[in-house]
Design a protein around this nucleic acid. Structure first.
Length: 190
DNA sequence: TAAAAGATCCCCT
DNA sequence: GGGGATCTTTTAT
């Protein structure tokens, strides 16, 4: 069910990969958790807002790993955020998963989130989706192309129109329009 | 060595 | 709409 992500799909500039990831499905817990990607943002080395802009550090090391792997980082003292690593190995690019729309496993997500299963507030933010899926620093660098705790699979298509605009929550390069989202989807973060 | 900022979220008003 | 939580990384002194 669903064609698995392949590294070569991600071995392109993040701003090219990002809109192409909309409509893909994030799977976790051996397929018990599934959600459709509805909002993403791109980050590159030349981008002042990117963690990789000032070169490699212990924190951003996974951004330079193989395309199709995860970059998971800790922020604001309490939250995890997940990215799909893009570009060739050795290049620091990634696509932030900002929001996904739950398909299956809502009860597990709700328990982890401290919400009810019918809530719209399960995966509508980068830290929320990590909490719902149980993603944290232990998954930093792991693959999304099969065999790991999480993977991405091509969805059935039929997405609505896609919009593009400035990224959320950054202070530098505010004007760069590298956020893409499914117009009108209630699970988009804003 | 100290201070500030940070790819967020939650609860209050 | 606004501020606090909470701590790692980055930047300033």
């Amino acid at each position: 069910m669903g064609c698995l992500l392949r590294p070569d799909f991600c071995e392109r500039p993040a701003p090219e990969v990002a809109p192409d990831l909309l409509g893909w499905e994030l799977w976790g817990d051996d397929g018990a958790l599934r959600a459709r990607v509805v909002e993403v943002e791109a980050y590159t080395e030349s981008d002042p807002a990117s963690h990789s802009h000032r070169g490699r550090t212990r924190r951003n090391e996974a951004m330079y790993g193989p395309p199709g792997s995860l970059y998971v980082y800790f922020v604001y003292g309490m939250h995890w955020c997940a990215n799909v690593v893009c570009g060739s190995e050795g290049v620091g690019e990634a696509v932030l998963l900002r929001a996904v729309a739950p398909l299956t496993g809502r009860s597990t997500m709700a328990m982890r989130r401290g919400r009810t299963a019918n809530s719209l507030d399960l995966c509508n933010g980068p830290a929320k989706l990590c909490q719902s899926f149980g993603m944290d620093g232990s998954h930093d660098g792991s693959t999304l192309c099969g065999g790991g705790m999480f993977d991405l699979r091509r969805g059935p298509g039929g997405l609505g129109p896609v919009a593009k605009g400035p990224r959320v929550g950054i202070s530098r390069a505010r004007e760069v329009p590298w956020r893409w989202y499914v117009t009108g989807d209630p699970h988009v973060s804003r």
